[in-house]
Design a protein around this nucleic acid. Structure first.
Length: 261
DNA sequence: ATTGAGACCTGTCGGC
DNA sequence: TGCCGACAGGTCTCAA
């Protein structure tokens, strides 16, 4: 959608998780999208005004795109339930943001606000980038008394991991979700073996997820190795453990007590 | 500063 | 069938 401009913007509420910024429609209308990027779980659209449209899908947000030829004067776009924002683009496309739980976010940031953003500016490395490795992970976990599970969900340690992929990566690495984060590093922040295994497991889990997401059938039918598999046999070859579930920080953790140490 | 618990919302699913 | 509680892939805030 780069190079398309916002011809019109419909706003059907004044807030999602937070209020929309002041003059949201006026500031967006007429602007051209020059760049599209992702950082952690945020989407960033760079605008011709040099502002940035920041978007987050929360838990239940989604975008749908209707092309020009799917719509007509006789049957124009009609916002459905939970279609909170609708973008009418100069390309003819209509883009609707739907979000039943409204945990999503949209904001408009000036270049200065983007650079100093209290969340964005503190995000950790992208897990699939070379900057994320055993050393980076060890440094970030050094001295942390919290659990490995909580540390990996902390977007300042590594950016973009959510509950499922943290659970999957910890199983892949053979590390207990309850284990103290500091134990994967030496006191000076150098990586122990566990840090290398964990960094590699995170990359592998995400690479596989990306590959699956490119195949609609594989994606729909896909399940995970331990997530949502309470009571099933541990999938690790040679392990005869049973997957357990427990609450950690209010969210479900799935793990094998036999092979995750 | 760090940490853990609770809050924010609506929809869906399983059990009675 | 309908009702009810538990739970959902994410942050943020607050209190210790």
């Amino acid at each position: 959608m780069t190079n398309a401009a916002f011809d019109a913007v419909e706003l059907h509420r004044r807030d999602l998780r937070r209020p929309f910024p002041r003059r949201f429609r006026a500031r967006l209308t007429g602007q051209t999208v020059l760049t599209l990027a992702r950082r952690a779980k945020y989407l960033l659209a760079g605008l011709s005004s040099s502002e940035t449209l920041l978007m987050h899908l929360g838990m239940s947000g989604s975008f749908s795109v209707e092309s020009q030829d799917a719509l007509s004067a006789a049957a124009p776009f009609e916002a459905g339930l939970h279609d909170h924002v609708v973008f009418h683009m100069s390309s003819g496309a209509t883009i609707a943001y739907n979000d039943p739980r409204r945990f999503g976010v949209m904001d408009l940031l000036t270049a200065a606000e983007l650079a100093t953003h209290p969340v964005l500016s503190k995000l950790g490395p992208e897990p699939l980038s070379p900057a994320f490795d055993a050393l980076a992970l060890a440094r970030a976990c050094k001295g942390k008394t919290t659990s490995l599970k909580a540390a990996l969900l902390d977007q300042r340690v590594v950016a973009g991991l959510g509950n499922i992929y943290v659970v999957e990566a910890l199983h892949r690495a053979g590390l207990s979700p309850q284990r103290r984060a500091s134990t994967i590093a030496t006191p000076s922040g150098l990586p122990r073996d566990a840090a290398g295994r964990l960094a590699a497991a995170i990359k592998r889990v995400l690479e596989e997820a990306v590959a699956r997401s490119l195949d609609a059938d594989a994606y729909r039918s896909s399940r995970f190795r331990v997530y949502d598999r309470e009571g099933e046999r541990c999938p690790r070859s040679g392990c005869s453990g049973v997957v357990r579930r427990r609450a950690q920080g209010g969210r479900s953790t799935f793990y094998c007590p036999a092979c995750q140490v």
